[in-house]
Computed example of a mutant assay.
Amino acid sequence: MVKYGAFVLFYLSIVWIVSSCSSSTVEPDAARLGYTYFPLEEKSFAIYEVEETIYSLTSTPVTRNYQIKEVIAEQFRDLSNEEAFKVMRYSRQNTTADWELDSVWVAKRTANRAIRTENNRSFVKLIFPVEESQKWNGNVLNELGADEYEFSQVAKPFTIANQPYTSTATVMQVNDSSACNMKRVYEVYAQDIGLIYKEKILVDYRQTNNICEGLGDIQAGVQLYQKLLNYGKE
């Protein structure tokens, strides 16, 4: 009986060692691959302050200030049979107003990319591993033309309204400006938080006798600045 008991203990020890080694090799290094820049956890939320200005040929510029709250809701299997999460998006005009449901988006993270479906259109927001100067087509999953995204400032600090974030990654989505227009869109992601900042400037400058007047005299377009205010778990 003693020998049998010793054998069982020895066998269980071997099984435990093998299973431990297997799990450590199978489990991905989330921080090293950059998964932590796109965390998905039920009931986690993020609140953003948004300033949006619309420029038009026929009217004066209109600026709207409002807040957006995103809540990661229940997990489900999408049409690709992959795990995804509903993202409940709420909006309000100010801190004293009630939140109102704006839309429902979808987010998922696979082994090699992070995807958000916004208003029924899917975008590849990140690819993994997150590495400096990596490029990819952010529109590969939708009907829009190819749009080259690129990582920059990976694992660098970023500050919003005196709030520092120690490790972030910037995704430049559009960066094509001239004397006649400015096209710049980028997002900043922080480890263990996700999106913390978005800037979208798509404007055309006024022309006189077919000559562009350049910066400062916007004829048409949109400017949007989205900043993280708060985040946590409900």
Results as ranks from 00 to 15, higher is better:
Met1Leu: 13
Val2Thr: 15
Tyr4Asp: 13
Val8Lys: 04
Val18Arg: 08
Ser19Pro: 05
Ser20Lys: 04
Ser22Cys: 09
Pro28Glu: 02
Ala30Arg: 03
Ala31Gly: 11
Leu33Met: 07
Leu33Asp: 10
Gly34Asp: 11
Gly34Ile: 15
Glu42Lys: 10
Ala46Thr: 04
Val50Gln: 13
Glu52Val: 02
Tyr55Lys: 00
Leu57Ile: 13
Thr60Gln: 13
Thr60Asn: 08
Arg64Leu: 11
Ile68Cys: 12
Lys69Ser: 14
Glu70Tyr: 06
Glu74Gln: 12
Arg77Ala: 11
Ser80Val: 09
Asn81Ser: 08
Asn81Val: 12
Phe85Pro: 04
Arg89Glu: 12
Tyr90Gln: 11
Glu100Asn: 14
Lys108Ala: 04
Ile115Gly: 06
Ile115Arg: 01
Thr117Gln: 15
Asn119Glu: 05
Asn120Met: 07
Phe123Ser: 01
Trp136Ile: 06
Glu143Thr: 12
Phe151Ala: 13
Val154His: 07
Val154Lys: 10
Pro157Thr: 00
Phe158Glu: 04
Phe158Ile: 15
Thr159Arg: 00
Ala161Asn: 15
Val171Asp: 01
Val171Ser: 01
Gln173Tyr: 07
Gln173Asn: 10
Gln173Lys: 14
Val174Gln: 01
Val174Tyr: 00
Asn175His: 00
Ser177Pro: 12
Cys180Arg: 05
Asn181Asp: 13
Met182Asn: 15
Arg184Tyr: 10
Arg184Lys: 14
Ile193Ser: 07
Ile196Phe: 03
Ile201Ala: 06
Ile201His: 04
Leu202Glu: 15
Asp204Met: 09
Arg206Glu: 06
Gln207His: 06
Thr208Asn: 00
Glu213Tyr: 00
Asp217Glu: 13
Ala220Gly: 07
Tyr225Val: 15
Tyr225Gly: 02
Gln226Val: 07
Leu228Gly: 13
Leu229Trp: 00
Lys233Tyr: 10
Glu234Phe: 12
Glu234Lys: 07
